[in-house]
């Protein structure tokens, strides 16, 4: 039917007109995660389809805040002990100063009403940002699905992200 064809064509045009943003979050340094989440939420709020691929240390961002130890063997458990996951526990990659630097920037952010990474991650899910965990990193760290917050997309591999990035209008590696 002609009407169906027109409708399908309009839908296809509408889909093409939607801009896409593909991002990689590879680090759990506070100074890298914060801008990643700000841009992801703003992108989604501005009508873009946003995908964020969390890989290597970045995967720790998606971990539940109350999950203290993860991993299946002593090395994985030890790694989780020294590099605690969850947005409440992110540390600065520089000027951490044994916790003083991170404490100060978090306190300043609260004082000046800058949204915290935890708030931004919740907003990202509310705004429809698709958060993709990396399967390889999950295996590397011995993480299981119950270690993560709810609302995540199925795990991906590198080729899936490359495909996503190839179709995106903007790709950011922060």
């Amino acid at each position: 039917m002609q009407t169906t064809d027109i409708s399908a064509a309009q839908q296809a045009m509408a889909d093409e007109s939607v801009k896409r943003l593909a991002m990689i979050c590879w680090s759990n340094d506070l100074d890298k995660v914060w801008p990643t989440l700000i841009l992801a939420t703003t992108g989604a709020a501005s009508g873009l389809e946003v995908d964020v691929f969390f890989t290597f240390w970045g995967l720790r961002v998606l971990q539940k805040n109350n999950k203290r130890f993860t991993g299946k063997n002593w090395m994985q458990k030890g790694e989780s002990f020294v590099d605690r996951g969850g947005t409440d526990h992110l540390k600065l990659g520089k000027i951490h100063f044994a916790g003083m630097g991170t404490w100060m920037i978090r306190k300043l952010a609260k004082q000046y009403k800058v949204a915290s990474p935890t708030e931004l991650l919740e907003m990202a899910l509310e705004c429809g940002v698709r958060l993709h965990p990396c399967q390889m990193t999950m295996d590397l760290y011995g993480l299981s699905p119950e270690d993560f917050i709810d609302g995540l997309q199925p795990t991906l591999g590198a080729a899936s992200f490359i495909d996503m990035a190839a179709k995106a209008d903007i790709t950011l590696f922060i």
């Binding site: 700000i38 939420t41 703003t42 709020a45 501005s46 000046y112 009403k113 800058v114 949204a115 907003m123 509310e126 705004c127």
Partner: peptide, 14 residues
């Protein structure tokens, strides 16, 4: 008022 980037935009979009 008092909110920093990107909160005003997120609030508007929502």
């Amino acid at each position: 008022l008092g909110k920093k980037c990107p909160l005003p935009i997120i609030m508007l979009a929502q």
